[in-house]
Amino acid sequence: MIEVHIMAEQVFYGLAILTIGSAIFALESRELIYGAIGLALSMLGIAGFFILLDAPFVAMFQIAVYVGAVAVLVIFTVMLVRTNELFTKREDKNRRIAGIVFAFIFMIVIGLILLGSELSKASIGELKIDNITQKIGGEMLTYYSPAFILLALVLAGSIIGALTLARREDVDNSYERVN
């Protein structure tokens, strides 16, 4: 049992480095397409955290949606708008310093608040529920069923909206075959 715990500890640190490192790489890489791949790796690290936290169903959902759909969507967009401007532009140096300072202040303040609170001593303990996936399905289809239906409508609306945005009015569509 002790060996398992040591393993979990090392996996945690590895995942933390992978997630945060590739998040920084996604923002700082010279080419945008490498940044998109870095973002996908970061999302994969988050899915690993979900598995460590005994949420395998959500982890699979995360991989399917983020690493599968969103990453591919982002890569296609990057390729569609590929120009020389996509290389990182001259950035305002003052703005950069201000951003780093602000991010550090935020991190330190919120971190100190959390570390000083009772949550820092909270122990996760043993998992007290079983059949997690079954329970998620039950919750979704009973108590949260209105939210579930609304979510389906939101997804349909966003797909229709994205298609409408991408449609071009100025292109002559008489070439399109009508069956």
Binding site: T19, A23, L27, A98, G99, A103, M107
Partner: peptide, 11 residues
């Protein structure tokens, strides 16, 4: 991670 995201949005 939230700090990294805030840095990205600012810069």
């Amino acid at each position: 991670m939230i700090s990294v995201g805030i840095y990205g949005i600012i810069v």
